[in-house]
Amino acid sequence: MRNTLPVLTVVAAILVIWYLAAFWMNAAWVMDQAARADREVGFADLFTATMTQDRPVVAAPHQVVTALWDGVFGHEITSKRSLVYHGFITLEATLWGFALGIAVGVGLAVAIVHSRTVNMSVMPWAVISQTVPIVALAPMIVVVSNALGVEDRLVPKAIISAYLSFFPVLVSMVSGLRSPQHMQLDLLKTYGATRAQVFWKLRLPSSLPYFFASLKVAIAASLIGAIVGELPTGAINGLGARMLIGSQFGQPLIMWAALFAAAILAGGLILIVTAIQRAADRRMGVMR
């Protein structure tokens, strides 16, 4: 808790800088309008004008909060203008991608730990796969899944988000499954344990702290994947699509609101995953 005061100070400083930036960047437009109308604007007028524009260059924090509030509570949650509705669409893709990413990551890690061949042939390609910018592949995934008769827009988004999230899980699980010490492995050998028994009773339990630690990275990556997946796919639902719509129709406030809704969603997901990690660590007796 000793970090509370510094964090609050930094957040307050960010807000102040933000307001100054909003004033500074939006002032040009107001001055311009005034010059055309041949009016003088006083400082007070200038200030209120910069804070309340409909299409601000920099939306002031209270405008973003208003737009968020309106988006979340101002409409029925089934309405297309509700951020809850769009957030839920994105969340759905994120969670499917997260689950898929975990399944692929854990599955590959188990195969890699048990087979030298898989390790040598797959591991380098897994690393290379992460250097390929996924956004380049995203439209392809949409086209192919459409051609295969998958109408649901959820599927390509979930695949893209799994592509981003499987890697942290894979890397952590490989080191986790390899974390038992030689002495422990030898002990199980003296018991005459089979490979399956070694896996279930030693390798898997000792990999769990690694697994939960990787989830935090994976969930953040999943959300990025889901949002990126909405951009080139011509999606009309979801937070990413909301940003695209705001950008195309010149409605900056929609963009800002969607951006902050995404940030809040990310924060919430990370908090949940952190809580799960803490609970699991406590159960496992791993104290930090």
């Binding site: 964090v7 100070t9 930094v10 260059v57 949002i227 695209l244 963009m255 969607a258 940030a263 990310a266």
Partner: peptide, 28 residues
């Protein structure tokens, strides 16, 4: 003081979907 204030904020922001600022940057 700054380190203790900025690092938690930085850690949090690093996990956010910052790609979302793309439309705003294009506007600017």
């Amino acid at each position: 003081f700054l380190t203790r204030g900025l690092l938690p904020v930085g850690n949090f922001v690093a996990a956010l979907p910052i790609v979302g600022v793309a439309p705003i940057m294009v506007m600017w």
